[in-house]
Each structure stands twice: as structure tokens, then as C-alpha cells.
Nucleic acid binder design. Structure first.
Lengths: 222, 222
DNA sequence: GTCTATAAACGGATAGAC
DNA sequence: GTCTATCCGTTTATAGAC
């Protein structure tokens, strides 16, 4: 277990690293165990030895990527509300907080921020193991807390309005994280800052904030 | 080829119907040819006979779903611009037009609107055959035309701003169409109108319009 | 056009030596 | 913990009868 003088990570970690990248690039079903072990330079059998099955490996990938973020997800919001002292928090602050706590990455592990984000984004679209298990449990509380905060900040909106707009917000973020950009927008128009998460957030913020602050949507020809 | 008195479609169409549904539900890699032929009630060999390969079948699914929409995609915008006579078209009208021409379905074929939408949405997130080939070619002109129209309507924005906001717009639509709703938002909050495309569009419109009209995003702490 | 039978390769998982 | 060899089911695709 202890190998302080080795250059490469141990086989268990190498498998996880390769799986993370390949699952992210191709998706779960289109990635074979042999592709993973081939990329990691280890024999196939080690996947089952270390992780039990392909599905177990996928779940380990998500477990490492999410790490111990469960607690810290609402921690930031807690602090904001403590400072606000009962008064509503401004929408732009909430949008930033939601983006940061959901996406911002300050890990000690060796996973890169880019990979993490695409991995999370993929969970929003691809059916398969690893995602169903923990996502609702981990995120449900955070979503509800933000919903309440947004409703306090936007008293002109109904709960349905707020939930829908959070849904759209999540959609934008997921697409920015995991989307294929099939219209080649960032390519055809050579958006210089496409690869920089901070820059994308800067573009995102005013769009989403204005969306939240928009008048309520008329349910039907009103 | 001609079977006017038969109750069921011919085998070629039945295969395409089943493939469309299963590819949509499970994704390309997770759907086997045998699942498709099993659902269609035909022997496996007919897939290769009619479509050459599994990939050919996938491409046929997309080809039928997109149909002859190529020409009509910018047709609506053409008419709007003719009516406007050189003056900018209002943002909300452009948003509606983009939604309608990209998503609204008035097909004569037997494909359902729901299936079509999820199929297109899936193209935005899943790597695999069928999508790369035609999407840029079919949509590039439309995207560029709308970009120009949005820029005329929003003179305070740079081209990068407009393209980014169109990108966010597409992201919302794709997520609303194909997303897994992994946070169970529409479920936990029992959004009554989640299944109704028109209702979702009504919720979407004010959010996106306000987002487009927002002040320009500051590239970095300005 | 339709079907059965089969080919040839690949999938995940395991047994057992080291 | 690591690795080779293998099992066995499933995969796509095809050959050839009807």
C-alpha cells in the first residue's frame, strides 16, 4: 500500500484514472474493461480484483470525484444566510454561490477539475450505474435550500417559477460542462475563452441572473 | 414495397421504429441489434440487409427524424425579416422563432414529437455515430442567420456575447429535451406541466429573453 | 424480401499459478 | 497483489436456403 518512492501510482489508482478519462470520453456502455486496462497498462483481471465489476469501477469513479463534498455543499449558503441575518440574499450572490458550491473544485486528489466537471455533467444525461445511487440523496437538500433562498430573493415568483428557472440554470451548466457543442459554436466563432471555466462563469452569470429576475412566465396566453 | 392492405408497416419501417425508440431510451452503445429486432419482431439479419450495419441503422434513424427540415429551418426567419424590412426583430420574437423552427414538429411521418425531441437532445450529449455527419452542415447556416438577427436586436452586445448566449439557450433546450433531471426537480416539486412542451416553452421564454437582454458580461472583474 | 444457422470477434468475469 | 489463461455469454455481421 505504501510506495513513497515509486514514480507511477499503484495499479488500483491507475485503473481508476484511466476509467475516469475513458468513461468521460466515451460513456459507460461504449467503454470496455479491456480499453481501461489497456490504457492503464495492467491486466484485465485487476479490475474485478480491485473493484468487483465494471459497474463497481464506475461507482468508484464517481465516489472519488464527489469525494467528501456532501457537507460543504450547503456550508457556503449557511454562511451567506448567517451574514444576511434574515434578509433575502441577492440573486447574483445566490447564482455565484450555487455555481461555486456545485462546481468549484478545490480537491486534494489528483483528479483534474476539467475531468470532474465533465464527469458530473455526464451523469445528467447518460443512463447507467453510478449516478442514480447518490445524486438525489447528496443534492436534494442543497437544491431545496437554494430554492428557498431564491424564493426569498424573488418574491414575485411562484415556487414553480423558481424551480423551473433552477432547472434551466442546471441545464446551462450541464451543457457547458458535458455538452458536445454539436453546432460547433465555440469552434466556428472561435470563442477564445471557451476552455476557461472562470471565463465561462463570467459569461454565464449575467445571463442567468437576468433570467431569474425576469417577470413570471405566463402559464398560457395571459 | 406496396402493401396497402396490411395492418403493420413493413419490416424495414418496423426496424426503424424500434431502433428509434430503443436508441432514444438506452443510447447507441447500450442498445444491441438483437434488442431492436426482438422488439420489432423480425429476424436479426434484416438489419444488415436493409441498413448495412448497426451504424447505418442509427444514421437512418437520424435521417428520418430530421427529414427535409433543412430548407424550412431558416424559412421562418426569412419571413420575419421580410416583414421587419431592415429593422431589428424583437428578441422575444427571435427566441420564439428559434424554438419553433428548431423544435416544433409538424411531420407527416409516424415519428412522435416526443421521440424526435429526445433523439435530437441525445445527439447533443452522446458520442457516437449518426450525429457528427450532418449536424454542422444542416445547422450552421441557421445558427449564423440567428446570430446576425440577435446581434441586430442587441446592439449593446459583442459577437462573443451573442454567441455565448445562444450557446446557453441551446443548452437549456437540450437539457429540457434530453436531460435526466438527475436532481429530480420535476419529480420532487411535482411540476405539473413538465410533460407539456408548450408549457415548458412558456416557462422558458421569459427566462431566455431576459438573459439575452442582460447587460454584457464583464470578461473579468470590471 | 425473409429467414435460419453460423461465423468471428468481443464482452465481463474467474480460476489458479506466482 | 499481480498476472496468464480461460470460460462463457453476447455482440455484430454474413452465408446460404427459401
Amino acid at each position: 500500500m505504501v510506495r513513497p518512492d515509486s514514480q507511477l501510482p499503484d495499479t488500483k489508482t491507475r485503473i481508476l484514472d484511466a476509467a475516469e478519462r475513458l468513461f468521460m470520453e466515451n460513456g459507460y456502455a461504449a467503454t470496455s474493461v479491456r480499453m481501461i486496462t489497456g490504457a492503464a497498462g495492467v491486466p484485465v483481471a485487476l479490475v474485478n480484483y480491485h473493484y468487483g465489476s465494471k459497474q463497481g469501477l464506475m461507482e468508484a469513479v464517481y465516489a472519488r470525484a464527489l469525494g467528501n463534498r456532501g457537507g460543504s455543499r450547503v456550508g457556503y449558503l449557511d454562511r451567506l444566510e448567517a451574514v444576511a441575518g434574515g434578509k433575502p440574499i441577492a440573486v447574483d450572490v445566490l447564482v455565484d454561490a450555487f455555481l461555486s458550491s456545485a462546481l468549484r473544485l478545490t480537491r486534494k486528489d489528483n483528479i483534474s477539475g476539467e475531468v470532474f466537471k465533465q464527469l458530473i455533467g455526464r451523469a445528467f444525461y447518460e443512463p447507467g450505474p453510478g449516478t442514480e445511487a447518490f445524486f438525489p440523496l447528496e443534492y436534494r437538500e442543497a437544491v431545496d435550500r437554494y430554492r428557498q433562498a431564491f424564493m426569498r430573493a424573488l418574491p414575485h415568483l411562484t415556487q414553480d417559477d423558481v424551480v423551473w428557472r433552477m432547472y434551466f440554470f442546471v441545464g446551462i451548466v450541464a451543457y457547458a460542462m458535458a455538452g458536445k457543442d454539436v453546432m460547433r459554436m465555440t469552434e466556428n466563432y472561435s470563442l477564445a475563452d471557451a476552455g476557461d471555466p472562470e471565463a465561462v462563469m463570467a459569461r454565464l452569470r449575467p445571463f442567468v441572473v437576468a433570467g431569474f429576475q425576469a417577470p413570471a412566465g405566463m402559464p398560457r396566453g395571459t
